[in-house]
């Protein structure tokens, strides 16, 4: 059980950080009480993890050969990377941290599935692009229906609120389905957990993070989305959910934050306004490049550290 602590910590921090991408706008704008959002998000994360999290777990656990020791090293290295990058204020993807750590382990045991890595990197590049494209399509299509609705201001308000809550719940489901692999896949690879147990433990630890520590992140990060009009905020959350869910089908864990940024960019293109600053894009690029590198180096250092032996002088 102790061996799982690194993974549980990773799941906890993932829940605390990423719930803001799905329910941040609803909570920050006080459309939904924090506790309602947190309970909804945890529930849907768990359902998503258990029902559809298996594919991602198989992809990540097949990246390299893992034993219990290397599984613990990789999850701790990923957890430290996420914490470090967060402290540095750089946008961080848990998926990239986990894969980075696994690259480190793969370099050590000289057995790495490069075909699997290629698929993952392609998906990482595709995440913000898919977020942008899906947001543009969704905005165009949904706007036609929305403008044709014969509703008054109050009814339109209710519809938008329900849509935002629905998209948030779907986003939480997609988050669980996609990101649970980051949390417990290494333990499946090491033979410590079955896929079902991994999805359950992973889903619960993400849910725990949402329930215990997501409030401040939801309130601050959510305000960025609230600056968009309610319809655009709904499109952004919905596009992010579809993007992340699509990659859950493919079986590659991706960053929900990068999907959100892509979707916000898409809405900006439609409306002809700058929704994402160049500095944000630059920070994302730096985080995107640094996270796997830092995680790889940390995994190598940790592995080196635990294999140090005290050799007394003869």
């Amino acid at each position: 059980m102790l061996s799982l602590l690194g993974g549980i910590f990773l799941g906890w921090s993932l829940g605390a950080n990423d719930a803001s991408n799905v329910f941040g706008s609803a909570v920050a704008s006080k459309m939904l009480k924090f506790w309602s959002a947190a309970i909804l998000a945890s529930l849907f994360v768990l359902i998503g993890a258990v029902l559809e999290g298996g594919t991602g777990i198989e992809t990540v656990s097949a990246l390299t050969l893992l034993d219990l020791e290397s599984a613990v090293v990789s999850s701790v290295a990923a957890a430290i990377t996420v914490t470090l990058m967060t402290l540095l204020g750089l946008p961080v993807s848990t998926s990239q941290a986990v894969v980075g750590a696994l690259i480190g382990i793969g370099l050590l045991n000289r057995q790495f599935n490069f075909a699997g890595l290629e698929k993952i990197v392609v998906c990482w590049i595709g995440t913000p692009i898919a977020g942008t494209v899906i947001a543009i399509i969704l905005y165009r299509v949904l706007a036609v229906f929305y403008n044709r609705l014969k509703v008054n201001l109050f009814q339109s308000d209710i519809i938008l609120r329900l849509c935002l809550i629905g998209a948030g719940a779907y986003g939480a489901y997609a988050l669980g389905a996609n990101n649970v692999a980051n949390v417990t896949a290494v333990f499946v690879g090491a033979g410590l957990l079955t896929v079902l147990a991994a999805t359950l433990i992973g889903g619960l630890s993400i849910g725990l993070g949402i329930l215990t520590f997501s409030r401040p992140v939801m309130e601050t990060v959510g305000k960025r989305l609230v600056r968009l009009d309610p319809f655009s905020a709904f499109v952004v959350v919905f596009a992010e959910a579809i993007t992340v869910h699509f990659y859950a089908f493919v079986g590659v864990p991706v960053s929900t934050s990068q999907a959100v940024v892509g979707a916000v960019l898409g809405v900006g293109i439609i409306k002809g306004i700058q929704t994402v600053s160049r500095r944000t894009l630059f920070n994302i690029l730096v985080g995107w490049l640094l996270t796997p590198i830092v995680a790889t180096v940390l995994a190598l250092m940790l592995d080196f550290g635990i294999h140090l032996q005290y050799v007394p002088n003869p």
Partner: peptide
């Protein structure tokens, strides 16, 4: 007291 979305509150 959390009735209506923020944009509508401000507008009304």
């Amino acid at each position: 007291a959390k009735a209506l979305i923020p944009e509508s509150r401000g507008d009304i």
